[in-house]
């Protein structure tokens, strides 16, 4: 999964690419797939997918469908569908994912939680609440 060709296949036609010499500040909401190779401070969001390159330094919360991290992220990550964490990744923040894979060597300092399990948990609480209400 983490060989370079596979990693970038989904992103070869990325609509937004932030190169290594660029610093982005603010709330970055891109269209389509996004590749970040530079520096980003603020927030990063798309309905599609995000690839964070190994030279990238991100200080922001990230939200997308699929997220691939091979660089440094200081902030929370929410990958609604799939999160891939490469061996060069450094993550300082909480991580939510649909599915996850982590390569040996990656650094993660934060809580990991499955969105699906969270949803099940929430559903369970809602059901229990209803049951309590109807029993009253």
């Amino acid at each position: 999964m983490f060989n370079k060709a596979n990693r970038l296949e989904k992103f070869k036609d990325a609509e937004t690419v932030i190169g290594a010499s660029i610093k982005v500040k603010g709330n970055f909401q891109g269209q389509g797939n996004i590749i970040i190779e530079g520096v980003l401070e603020g927030s990063l969001k798309t309905d599609s997918n995000i690839f964070v390159g190994d030279q990238a330094k991100i200080t922001a919360n990230i939200e997308a469908s699929d997220v691939i991290i091979t660089g440094e992220v200081r902030g929370n990550i929410k990958a609604k569908n799939y999160l891939a964490i490469g061996d060069t990744a450094k993550i300082f923040g909480d991580v939510q994912y649909g599915e996850i894979s982590v390569e040996r060597g990656a650094i993660i300092n934060g809580q990991l939680s499955s969105i699906n399990e969270d949803n099940k948990h929430t559903e369970k609480i809602k059901t229990e609440d209803k049951a309590t209400i109807s029993s009253k």
Partner: peptide, 18 residues
Amino acid sequence: QSLDTILKIDDYSLEIGA
């Protein structure tokens, strides 16, 4: 010329350092 150019777009800015 890209060096020292700043672009402001929507809620964010791009600073180019090369």
